[in-house]
């Protein structure tokens, strides 16, 4: 409690202010108006995040199906039946494996390239704006729009294969079961890199210049300085990049849906979210899809926790 808190009469001039009585005011804090101003946001979070999460978990333990609005139907509790159905579905394991492939390619590429480009960009004087803008243009463009170009570029007779000539893979990128997922990972890396470059640029501002000077005096070359000063200096940002890339990977939908025509060839690029859509909405089993969603959340949380532990995210 500060001594200069506003006198009740002054605060009461606000149009929505209830007549102040000392006790509720003290219980709600110095400025109960804060609660009122946050109320729409809190309501929104409750309606769009909190309730759906609870609903989803509940649904995953029911025999839930779509019914006409308002219809009274019996949706019995079925225990872990939906979870068993998910675990016994080979397509689910395939999709988790696909995300694994995605992460193995996407995360190292994203971290490496965005840090490299951000470091270079941080040091140059000319054309900084041009480079910065050209890097984040893919990030701000709709996936659906850039997918159209990638389909053209990576089609069987497309420009990429024309340049590669005899080295072009057969069958082509997006219809090759070994290359479909790596191509998607490459696409997502390309599209999101600009955002991560911006994150690293911000992080680089926090690395002390004197550290570089000290390292120079000690005789460290540019490469050495990069690994001993820059890399540890931006570690909080790296943890964040790892986390965000994992979440992006777990969320993959648009790219496999459009680039490989719904997770093809033969499920080689199906993602868990695409599978949730197919099982839950196309095939009308929202209960099974919810169980899959719960399992996916648990996986993401475990991976996020591991990354946090091993990369040391204490400072972030």
């Amino acid at each position: 409690m500060t001594t200069v808190s506003a006198p009740p009469s002054a605060a009461a001039t606000g149009p929505d202010e209830t007549p102040p009585s000392r006790r509720p005011r003290r219980w709600l804090g110095e400025n109960p108006l804060g609660l009122l101003l946050s109320a729409p946001y809190l309501l929104f979070i409750g309606l769009v995040f909190a309730y759906p999460i609870v609903f989803s978990v509940w649904m995953s333990f029911q025999d839930y199906f779509f019914a006409a609005p308002g219809a009274e139907v019996d949706r019995p509790f079925v225990g872990f039946d939906n979870y068993i159905a998910v675990i016994q579905d080979p397509a689910v394991w395939r999709s988790f494996g696909n995300v694994g492939i995605f992460l193995l390619i996407n995360v190292p590429l994203t971290v490496g390239l965005s840090l490299l480009l951000a470091t270079a960009l941080d040091k140059v004087v000319h054309a900084r704006t041009f480079f910065r803008v050209s890097y984040y243009v893919p990030y701000v463009t709709a996936s659906v729009a850039v997918v159209a170009v990638w389909l053209f570029l990576f089609s069987t007779g497309g420009l990429v294969n024309q340049i590669l000539g005899p080295l072009a893979p057969e069958p082509s990128w997006l219809v090759n079961s070994a290359l479909a997922m790596p191509t998607i990972a490459l696409f997502v890396t390309w599209k999101g890199l600009g955002f991560y470059i911006l994150l690293y640029l911000a992080a680089l501002q926090n690395v002390g210049k004197e550290l570089y000077e000290a390292a120079s005096v000690d005789g460290a070359g540019a490469v050495r300085r990069f690994f001993t000063v820059t890399v540890p200096g931006v570690r909080p940002a790296t943890v964040l990049v790892f986390l965000l890339a994992t979440i992006t990977g777990a969320n993959l939908f648009t790219e496999p849906y459009l680039l490989t025509g719904g997770g093809g060839p033969n499920g080689a690029s199906t993602s868990p979210v695409l599978l949730m859509y197919q099982r839950g909405i196309e095939q009308g089993n929202p209960d099974v899809a919810s169980a899959l969603g719960v399992i996916l959340i648990i996986f993401v949380l475990i991976i996020a926790w591991l990354q946090y532990r091993f990369l040391g995210g204490r400072e972030s």
């Binding site: 759906p52 859509y277 839950g280 909405i281 969603g293």
Partner: peptide, 12 residues
């Protein structure tokens, strides 16, 4: 991740 809320939000 928003996508994980897709099924319950769609139902609601």
């Amino acid at each position: 991740p928003f996508q994980l809320l897709m099924i319950p939000l769609y139902v609601m």
